[in-house]
Structures are given as C-alpha cells and as structure tokens.
Nucleic acid binder design. Structure first.
Lengths: 182, 182
DNA sequence: CGACAATACGGAGACTGTCTCCGTTTAGCA
DNA sequence: TGCTAAACGGAGACAGTCTCCGTATTGTCG
C-alpha cells in the first residue's frame, strides 16, 4: 500500500473509533470522512461497508479480549463466581460502543460477516473459560460456546438498547449462569 | 375523527401490517403511504413516528397474546415444560416481524415508549405464567417478570438477527428456564 | 339546501445519509 | 526528472424522512 493511502486509512480508523464511541455504530460515514480530512470516496475505497470499518476499529480491541479472558481464568472463587465474572467482563467488552452488542452478537456464527474474526476471538475466549469449568465438571456439557455467547450477548443487547447499567444486568446474568451450572 | 380520516388511517395500518411482514420494521414509510394511496403528509399526521405506526399495527395482536398466555397456563406437564412452552410461544409472538424482538424488548420497561402498552400486555401475560409457577414454589422469587421478559426477549432478538429457527433457540431457552426454576 | 369553518389531504421539496464515478493529483520507481 | 499506476476527493445520483402550505373535503348550522 502506498504511504499516503496507509496514512489516510489510519486516520479514518482513528476518527471512526472516536466518533463511534460518541455517537454509536450508526454514525454518518461521510461525517467521519470529513473529520478525517478525506473525501467519501476515499473512505469507501478503504472500507466498502460499514462493517469493514467497524472491523478495523475493533482491531486493537482483540488483545484486550484475550487479556480479559486470561484474567477471568485466573480469577479466584468458585465456578459460579468465575462464570459470572467472565459474563460481566464479556458484557463490558462488547458494550464499548452503542449498538455494539447487537452488531457483534448478530454476526456471531455468521461465516460471511466482515467482523467474523472478531466474533471468533470472543467466542474462543469464552470457550476457554467454559472449558476450564467443564474440566471441573461444573457446567452442563450439552451447550456450545456459541450458544453461551449468544445468550450473554442477548442480555448485553437488551441492556444496551434499554440503557441498563451493569447492576441491572447482573441478576439476568445470574439466571443464565445458574442455568448453565450443574 | 372525520370519516375520511378514519378511512385513510385504517388503510394505512392495513398496508403497513402487510409491508412490515414482508420487509421488516424498517420498511420505507413513504412507500407505505404510496401503497395506501395517500401522501406522506397524511401518514405522518396520523403517525408522527414509526413506533406510533407499529403500535397501531400491533393492536390486533394484543388479544392473541392474552389467548396464548391462557393456553400456556392450561398447558399440561410439569413446571419446566410449562415454562418452556411459554418461552417458545413468547419468542414466536414477538418474532412475527423482522426487527420485532429488538423493537419490543428494547422498549420493555420504557414508560415513554409509544409501544409501551403492548410491552405491558406482554409483560403481564408473562407475569401470569410466572405467578402460577411461583404459587407452586417452582421458580426463584428474586426475579421480576420484567427481567424474564428481557432475558427471553434477548434470546429472541439474537435469534431474529441471526435468523435462527425455533429448534436452534430451544436449547438457549432451556438454559434460561433452568436458571429460573428452583 | 347552501355556505362556511374546521378538518384533512397530498405532494413538492428541504434535509440527511449512502455510495459511485471519473477527472485530477500524487507517490514511487526507473 | 519523467512516467505510470495508485490513490484522491467531491460532485451528484439515489433513497428515506419529515414538513409546509395551498387545496380539497366534511359536517354542521342557519
């Protein structure tokens, strides 16, 4: 890629991250282009769809997911507490941008989605936590990590749409956790 | 209301119901107006926001909700089966239109939403089923009917977005049910 | 019945966001 | 330094939302 192209691409992603944070994932793309000092054509050449741009914005966030899963695995306490802790972190992770939970959870399991790699990272991070609990024979084994991601993602989606805080979300996560534990 | 106004209003609702069913809740309102043979101004005078129109479209559906809850109460089988049966019916009820689960579940508990009455009907229908199970001391009592509506609505929202069929939804509903039962 | 408010209609058009096309510019290489 | 492939960017087509206001219709009252 030519140096100027790289420069523009980086600036677009940077601006997009900020605008998405302020206005949610349905912010105007032309506005992002303008703020980045490029024409709409340039933005759309780099990112043909909104999801492609979102995917780029999420790039940095992947490491954060891995780290959070590591912490959840090392978390002290019983299985229920560890599972709940991960669920809360999961909700937090996918709720950084308004509309994020719906976007991410909707793309979960969709092989054709532009953000599929991000979903896979999330899903496998959750899978690791789940595997740990399974090794202790603490959770039922007829449920896949995809299903768990969808369940918790569903809670996060509702919380995002209804603007609930984590405190209001906790009891719902408890129900899911208790339904999952043996 | 003037007779011609009533006539137009009825026609708009009828057309909207059909278009929403075919295209989902984000169909073009101007198109609905055109198909109903009225100008956009007329549509927007009757229904200032999209949600107001959706609310009108849902009017007939209210009785169906009540009926379904009655059936669920009379359903034979143990608590788990009855609860699951209601959950499945609930998902079916709010999934008649694409985008419906998100719309309805997002408005749940929002006193200012134009579709609040519909949400209340749903919530109280679910409350009746829950109360029956509570009377049998079958479900935990630290969870409100609003929280249950959000949990199941969250599952429905994800299923709608990912185009999952009821068969794929069932295991997730089982987790929620098991987390709820004592 | 006929006229006159009051009520309702409808469509032109302003506005916003998406996305493309293509003439112009620029980077990087030879 | 000159050339070419790559990249730019903005005008503008298109679609959806929503409003304004001149026009038409309704229903009532003398």
């Amino acid at each position: 890629m030519r140096a100027d192209a790289q420069r523009n691409r980086d600036r677009i992603v940077e601006v997009a991250r900020q605008v998405f944070r302020e206005q949610g994932y349905d912010a105007s793309l032309d506005l992002i282009a303008k703020q980045a000092g490029v024409g709409p054509g340039t933005l759309y050449r780099h990112f043909p769809t909104r999801d492609d741009l979102i995917d780029a914005v999420m790039q940095a966030w992947v490491h954060h997911v891995e780290e959070t899963a590591d912490k959840a695995l090392a978390h002290e306490g019983g299985p229920r507490e560890r599972l709940l802790n991960w669920f809360e972190e999961y909700v937090r992770l996918i709720s950084v941008h308004k509309g994020g939970p719906a976007k991410i959870t909707g793309a979960m399991g969709d092989e054709a989605s532009p953000i599929r790699t991000k979903c896979q990272v999330l899903q496998s991070a959750g899978g690791r936590v789940l595997d740990q609990l399974r090794a202790e024979d603490a959770v039922r084994d007829d449920v896949t990590s995809l299903q768990v991601a969808r369940l918790v993602g569903g809670v996060a989606t509702v919380a995002d749409a209804s603007e609930l805080d984590l405190e209001a979300v906790r009891p719902m996560l408890e129900v899911v956790a208790d339904g999952l534990l043996k």
